[in-house]
Design a protein around this nucleic acid. Structure first.
Length: 992
RNA sequence: GGGCCCAUAGCUUAGGUUGGCUGGAGCACCCGGCUGAUAACCGGGAGGUCGUCGGUUCAAAUCCGACUGGGCCCA
């Protein structure tokens, strides 16, 4: 007898248990290695893993990306491709790594790093790179993302770096790598540029001077002295002023000041500066100001042909200031751009710590902020200071030390991506983006404005820029270790590590002039490293690898944040080096939000830890939840939603299989793996559905539509469970027709076996479980894994006619049930007939007698009669319920049944109660009982005449005794349509 | 300030390219049934201004424009 301890585990727990045992099976038999092993005879599917930085914990978004990334790879493997390459990869360099180490030491500036020792610092960076690699591997394993983690590529590997150097030299030789200036936010206290995401963390409210000064123009034709008015909140930049910018399409006016001089401002700024509506002496369309010369405010920057002029630029506005903008090319991105365009050079009188140099004697040695009052005094006494106020505004400060940042032009090396713009746009046309809008949206827009890529970093832990320069300015780019050895006149030592500590000291005579060349003291942007992955992971071109310069990757997939990150650097490098796109298909996923639609973040406390979540609900469940949501946009995720969505489909499928197995085990039948030749209507229908599903899933996965594939599987599982299995249940234990029982068994096992294959890319753990159970391998042999199996090919697209007819039949079931409900006759009471009046017989008639039997049985009617609408309608209202659909058909059901059928209904009703009683006693359906019944009159007659049926159905041993009269008080009792039924069930011991 | 995405029932969503039957499903809810049945199954019900406004059209959830709200990226 069964007991409580066998209460079935919840689907969630089952899925988790399955995951554990499948993981163990894969590990014990080396299944992952077998799946990933190279198979030279197979066609290639090119792929590269986007390398995460493993010095931070993976978050749930990483799990989403990995789950989605995995599906096409598994699918292509089953389609007979070899994925080149399944190497895992780790991004090792860059500021995030340095910051972790800085944090550990509480360093606050680069000076402190250098005092500590660059070598020690870099060693610690190297050690911290893999701090969380265990979490990444665990997460990947739990979500079922298969890569070769034993031989990953690492961007800090000397061979990897050598490939990167090779590519930089190619760019250099093509004139695509050059030295220039770059204007970027700079912390004078930390003496380092600050990257943009750091800037975003440091905006503060500050009070600053807000001053307006006048610049002297030549006098007007009538002799009136003229001045430009310019406004600034950074008086310290005024000594570096080289130009004034106006906008061509603004209207400027020259107004008469209190001193009789003429002052030029934009018309839109007039009210701010001259509220008293002064006399307008002259009007100047903006473009007429172009080239107007003015006298320098300070003498320090010195003369220059093209300096101290008005130039035109669109960045000028008139909502703030005077509509005339002071331009100091050393101290602002727009300033720098304009200065560069106008060829006025730079004047940068600040040293690395932000103090003025001797170039500006009146403030020499003072910090830039401290110099403001001194400079203002000088302007006041020369009469140039027109207005002086203070302003509160948000201003970027250093997120580490709160020092106000300044924009300054620094030396930098660039990839000349602006010159590649056309090629970048052209090769983007060959990429299939999913979702498609990224191609001409986010990514395309970015390409249209492709700016030169500031490559160099004033940092320590990164790929060193392999460029040496002599005092004469001749630059030499080194493309290999061999070349570097040759240049310095001695081969590099074995095991040479090309990081800064070893590379910085190397010097060699300049190949052009012979004077000693020194390495440019930069590392490069870590995004360049990862963009080089498709070739650098193989140490191309130094080692023969599978990399083919002419071939793009077939497929990459990462999160949306990589559009301007990895996707961009991949694209730029592929275009620059190989003149082709980097990838053919790019699958992009969106963000993971919490249940409320909020972005998950540690600070909000709503971030789910992926490893804990995966441990809790299992990888398949998490994957399934991702497929079901909108993963191209913003996927909402909660543990509850994940459990629920998994339980619907995966839990149901699990149950179907367990139903199958229970019966098959009882019968000692092995599963059928070859396609059966079905006879029974339901079997034929299921195989047709299965064929249709196979085609549907194949088509969806061919075009990377994981969502559609999962939805198709979910629909099939629902049909399988709620129609095929529900209708077929008795067939699995029927002794009446052993052949049919075999057929049902074969059909269901074949369907489940095929489904395991279709499910393999989507839910790899459950798919493996089903496959192991059904294939008979049961974990015996790692060669027999569903992930090493071939993708199923359906012999047909399904029988559309059969599907259509069955769908029609199911609609008549609905109609019949509705009528029965309105007639008030419960399903267990048979009714004599369902009448369907329709011009043509409905499609389900094409299913033949088997279909009609199915319909009759489902509706519990003795007959279904199809009539033409032209036949006499002899079904008057009191006796019949009617549904006239208005679509040309009418369905009718009698409101009452015959006495004979009522007796049949009573029997079924009694049976059901007694079955329920068995179940309430927790009897299994193989446990035998001794049964005694009490009833009167008609019910007693019914039971007595059916005692044989009762005995068989209820597994009662011996004849069922039916006693007249009321049941004793200790017996079970029910009321059936006003009659009492009593029963006593005594379980019998199992036969020895 | 610029660009992009999203908006369909209380919740999750299908449909949208190619305008056309009554906008489809699941969960939750209500009523009823059924059970050798899983967080089961079956029938019915209620629940929708398809974000708002305007346009194109014989016809708009679908195409176009503006707006509102949410999100992302850039400046």
């Amino acid at each position: 007898m069964a007991t409580d301890e066998e209460a079935p585990p919840t689907p969630g727990r089952r899925l988790r248990e399955i995951q554990r045992s499948v993981e163990r099976f894969w590990a014990d038999h080396g299944v992952v290695a077998r799946a990933l092993r190279d198979a030279p005879d197979r066609p290639v599917f090119r792929f590269t893993e986007g390398p995460p930085t493993a010095n931070g914990r993976p978050h749930l978004g990483s799990a989403l990306t990995r789950a989605l990334k995995d599906v096409p790879l598994r699918y292509r493997r089953m389609r007979g491709f070899r994925v080149v390459t399944a190497m895992a990869g780790w991004d090792c360099h860059g500021l995030p790594v340095e910051l972790e180490v800085e944090k550990a030491h509480r360093f606050r500036s680069k000076r402190e790093i250098e005092a500590y020792g660059v070598e020690k610092f870099c060693d610690e960076c190297r050690a911290s790179v893999f701090e969380y690699v265990g979490h990444w591997k665990a997460m990947s394993q739990r979500i079922g993302y298969w890569l070769d983690y034993d031989r990953p590529y690492e961007t800090m590997d000397p061979r990897y770096i050598e490939s990167v150097w090779w590519s930089l030299k190619v760019l250099f030789d093509r004139g695509l790598l050059f030295r220039g200036h770059y204007s970027l936010p700079y912390c004078p206290r930390c003496a380092t540029p600050v990257s943009s995401h750091e800037v975003a963390q440091g905006y503060r409210e500050l009070t600053d001077p807000s001053v307006t000064v006048r610049l002297d123009l030549s006098a007007a034709p009538d002799g009136t002295p003229r001045h430009l008015l310019v406004w600034t909140t950074t008086p310290w930049t005024l000594p570096a002023n080289l130009l004034v910018a106006a906008r061509a399409d603004l209207e400027y006016v020259g107004v008469k000041g209190p001193d009789g001089h003429e002052y030029l401002v934009a018309e839109g700024a007039l009210a701010r500066y001259f509220p008293a509506a002064p006399e307008v002496l002259r009007r100047y369309p903006g473009r007429e100001l172009d080239g107007l010369a003015y006298a320098p405010l300070f003498p320090y920057a010195g003369p220059g042909d093209r300096r101290y002029r008005v130039v035109l630029d669109d960045f000028v506005g008139e909502t703030e200031g005077t509509g005339l903008v002071h331009v100091a090319p050393a101290y602002g991105p727009d300033d720098y751009r304009i200065g560069e365009r106008e060829g006025v050079g730079l004047f940068d009188p600040l040293d690395a710590s932000g103090a003025f140099t001797d170039a500006v004697p009146i403030v020499a040695g003072q910090g830039f902020k401290a110099a403001d009052p001194v400079l203002l005094d000088a302007l006041r006494s020369s009469g140039a200071l027109v207005r002086e106020e203070r302003i509160r505004h948000t201003y970027p400060t250093c997120w580490r030390c709160a020092t106000p940042l300044l924009y300054r032009a620094v030396d930098s090396w660039f990839v000349r991506s602006s010159r590649l713009r056309d090629a970048l746009v052209r090769s983007n046309e060959q990429v299939r983006w999913i979702p498609a809008h990224i191609q001409h949206g986010r990514f395309g827009n970015f390409l249209d404005e492709a700016k030169d890529w500031a490559l160099s970093r004033n940092r320590y832990w990164g790929t060193p820029l392999p460029v040496w320069r002599c005092p004469g300015g001749h630059a030499t780019c080194v493309g290999s270790f061999e070349e570097l050895g040759r240049l310095r006149g001695a081969p590099l030592p074995a095991g040479f590590d090309p990081h800064r500590v070893s590379v910085d000291p190397i010097r060699f005579p300049c190949p052009t002039c012979g004077v000693e060349a020194v390495r440019e003291p930069y590392t490069i942007d870590a995004w360049y490293d990862s963009g080089a992955a498709p070739f650098a992971q193989y140490h191309y071109p130094f080692e023969p690898g599978p990399f083919a310069p002419t071939e793009p990757l077939d497929y990459v997939s990462e999160g949306l944040d990589q559009t301007r990150g990895w996707f961009y650097t991949l694209h730029v490098l592929a275009t620059a080096l190989f003149d082709r796109p980097a990838f053919r298909t790019c699958l992009v996923n969106g963000l993971v939000l919490d249940d409320e639609g909020q972005k998950m973040s540690k600070s909000k406390g709503n971030a789910l830890d992926p490893v804990a979540l995966l441990d809790d609900v299992g990888g398949d469940a998490v994957r399934w939840a991702f497929y079901a949501g909108d993963y191209t946009g913003s996927a909402r995720v909660s543990p509850h939603a994940i459990r629920f969505s998994a339980q619907r489909t995966l839990g149901t499928l699990l149950h179907v299989h367990e139903f199958y197995r229970t019966n098959a085990d009882a019968d000692g039948i092995a599963p059928t793996l070859a396609r059966p030749a079905p006879v029974h209507l339901l079997d034929r229908w299921l195989l047709s559905r299965l064929d249709g599903l196979t085609e549907e899933v194949t088509d969806a996965l061919d075009v990377y539509e994981t969502h559609a594939a999962a939805a198709a599987v979910a629909g099939f599982v629902d049909d399988l469970s709620t129609w095929y299995l529900r209708r077929s249940r008795p067939r699995f234990w029927s002794d009446a027709d052993r052949a049919d029982r075999r057929h049902a068994d074969a059909t269901l096992s074949y369907a489940l076996y095929t489904l395991a294959h279709l499910l393999a890319p989507l839910a790899p753990f459950l798919a493996e479980h089903l496959y192991q159970e059904l294939s008979g391998a049961r974990g015996a042999d790692g060669e027999r894994s569903v992930h090493l199996a071939a993708w199923p090919v359906a012999p047909t697209s399904g029988d559309a006619e059969l599907d259509h007819r069955m769908a029609d039949l199911r609609e008549w079931v609905e109609v019949g049930r509705e009528l029965r409900q309105r007639a008030g006759v419960r399903s267990r009471t048979p009714l004599p007939v369902l009448v369907v009046r329709r011009a043509e017989p409905p499609p389900c008639v094409g299913l033949g007698e088997a279909g009609l039997e199915l319909l009759r049985d489902e509706l519990n009617v003795k007959a279904v009669r199809f009539e033409s609408t032209t036949a006499p309608d002899d079904y008057p209202d009191p006796g019949w319920v009617r549904r006239d659909d208005g679509r040309g058909w009418v369905a009718l059901l009698p409101r009452a049944t015959t006495p004979e059928l009522r007796r049949e209904g009573l029997l079924r009703e009694s049976l059901r109660r007694l079955q329920q009683a068995r179940k309430d006693r927790r009897l299994r359906f193989t446990d035998r009982i001794e049964l005694t019944l009490w009833a009167r009159d008609e019910l007693a007659e019914v039971l007595r005449s059916a005692s044989e049926t009762l005995g068989r159905e209820l597994l009662a041993a011996g004849p069922v005794a039916v006693l007249d009269g009321d049941p004793p008080p200790d017996a079970l009792r029910w009321e059936l349509d006003g009659r009492w039924l009593g029963a006593r069930l005594v379980p019998l011991p199992a036969p020895a």
